[in-house]
Design a protein around this nucleic acid. Structure first.
Lengths: 351, 351
DNA sequence: TTCATGTATTGAAGCGCTTCAGACAGTATC
DNA sequence: GATACTGTCTGAAGCGCTTCAATACATGAA
């Protein structure tokens, strides 16, 4: 089967020849049918169908059309959080007749710039970006490197950029306040991912809550940071905690780590929630179905992705009047039995 | 900040002007540096850097260069199985300097053709496709519609297409044989996703195993099919099972459904594995960490994605000598305590 | 000096498309 | 009958790039 290098070999001029009109007319029937008589339009449409003509989008974009592609750069493709957001982005894209290039920066700034460069070279319409690590303004530079409209996802920017984020500090505060209200006076924060912004902010939120309660973080808060973000990292964190005096409340930077903590604790005979109250973050599907249903901070993931994509479309519409906008979404604490002492299942929302 | 519609407004001719050479020379220093004297090369490189020139990939492709983009069409973006495969695809792509457009067909043939059409219009280098539903040859037509090189992912094709798949029939056989060996004489298969190919084949494998053991499927095998693939669908399936005489071994088409089955059963006071042995499919991360570690069929997901991507690169290299190749990978049964009676933790491989 | 032989560089054609200025009827207006 | 439209259609220019034939300039050999 002979194919030209770029897919279907039929070009607009083949269609024109077949329909007995000029290429301009074919182009018009595709893009401005109102300029073409019904008769020719039908002829052209027939020729298109017969030849299986699919306009070359690259050529189109080259002549100034807006690209139908947007980029999405996240820190981790397998993270349920990002994937739920990605699904929402995909949905928004689909509704706008677009398609998404999904990239994985692995939280590595170098890889991130490379990706932005590639997306720029593809002349995508724009990109959604969750910046890798803490870049201290280097971010801006990296974005400019890509020379494309960017909307930040899950990252709050100052005024001169578009962003949609979830308030991680507030989420962590919710979690720790909850533990404090339950009477725990010594709590731990288990974070992961070296320098991962989200976790840095959650640690901050934990500290804020402790302070707001009039407690001293140096005694009332144990902070543990692991390299990774998985169950195993939770296990390791719990190991650390077991070495000293165990706090009675543990807040983890994500649900996976909470599961790991749970696993290690129960292996050590520590009961959740009787001996230790456990709170996770993200409220992934599994949280509600865990051995002990996990109290967790739920993020409006779907909204996050959807809004960000919409903002990008607006931002990249070339509308001169576009003003950069920052949307900060609020997380919500879902209380389940992993934190409510004595087996009381104080479920606020059934997950 | 004035930007042209397609990103950086710097064109090759701007670079040429800046460096005081012709566009041809600039192009040469980028693509065939050996044709350019060291002196001019340096000058051009400097101009490129100073202007932040990024070649327009669309224009490049238009002149015959191979696209740096491949498409990946899966049934569900949030499925852990596909996402692990996607990550492997992404890795393979990255190694080849490519980037992946990730699409979600939602197991809908119409959406699938639409996506192939879009990918075709983008003139991507090729696509990896997990076909939606059972299309009975309609598949081929749909692929041709896209006019692009396609490698099937997680779907076994006949000789005239490239594919990388995992033997679902064999996987299911492993699972059911395991149950039969444990002495269970009446087992259930819980499948999901209306007409989802993978589950249809797993059902087949279950039947095969029953037959091979000399049992009668009409009495020894209970088949239940749910619409979805999630925990909740497992719960519903278990509900059905509880209505009649409960089989002593249950094999689920995926781990999520197994979790759901477990949940409903334990709510009904049925103990796993003491009363019922439970086996899942996919061996997702959580399987090993479930309340009762779940026996599951592990698929070589990473290999699946990586090999498929490589095959696509080979296939789309335009190499005339390319022969279509079908690779079928073998799954593996990971035995954990959800199936081994009396609390024996007959763990074959520590998950 | 004149050729041949390279090596460096250039300019233009062409990739597939859109769009814009014109051309060419066919009507309506004066 | 001349003029001005209006509705259709065409041809060519141009999007940013690559490539190929052609040119220009050295260099060494004859």
């Amino acid at each position: 089967m002979a194919r030209t290098q770029n897919g279907t070999g039929v070009r607009i001029q083949d269609v024109a020849a077949r329909a007995g009109v000029s290429v301009g007319t074919v182009s018009h029937t595709i893009n401005h049918p109102e300029l073409v008589s019904a008769r020719t339009r039908r002829a052209v449409e027939r020729a298109i169908k017969e030849l299986g003509f699919v306009p070359n989008q690259q050529a189109r974009v080259l002549t100034g059309a807006a690209s139908q592609v947007i980029g999405l750069v996240v820190l981790d493709v397998v993270s349920p959080f990002f994937m739920e957001a990605a699904r929402a982005v995909e949905r928004a894209a689909r509704e706008a007749g677009h398609v998404v290039i999904l990239c994985n920066s692995d939280n590595d700034p170098a890889r991130e710039s490379q990706l932005l460069q590639i997306l720029g070279a593809q002349r995508v319409r724009g990109a959604l970006l969750t910046p890798a690590r803490t870049g201290q303004g280097g971010d801006r530079a990296r974005i400019e490197a890509g020379h494309l409209p960017v909307v930040f996802l899950d990252y709050q920017t100052a005024g001169d950029d578009c962003s949609v984020s979830v308030d991680d500090v507030a989420g962590a505060r919710l979690a720790v306040e909850h533990l404090l209200e339950l009477g725990h006076e010594r709590v731990a924060f288990v974070g992961g991912g070296q320098g991962l912004r989200q976790h840095v902010q959650r640690a901050q939120g934990a500290r804020d809550a402790i302070l707001a309660a009039g407690l001293d973080p140096s005694t009332a808060l144990v902070e543990i940071t692991q390299d990774g973000l998985g169950i195993q990292d939770g296990v390791l964190a719990a190991e650390h905690l077991l070495e000293g005096e165990l706090p009675t409340g543990i807040f983890c930077g994500n649900d996976m780590m909470a599961f790991g903590v749970y696993r290690r604790l129960s292996r050590a005979g520590v009961k959740v929630p009787d001996d230790v109250a456990l709170v996770g973050y993200d409220d992934i599907d599994f949280a509600a179905d865990w051995v002990v249903p996990l109290t967790s901070v739920r993020q409006p993931t779907d909204q996050l992705g959807y809004l960000a994509a919409q903002l990008l479309f607006e931002h990249s519409a070339g509308d001169e009047a576009h003003v950069h906008r920052q949307t900060v979404l609020q997380p919500e604490l879902i209380v389940r039995s992993s934190s409510t002492r004595g087996g009381r299942t104080g479920v606020t929302i059934v997950g």
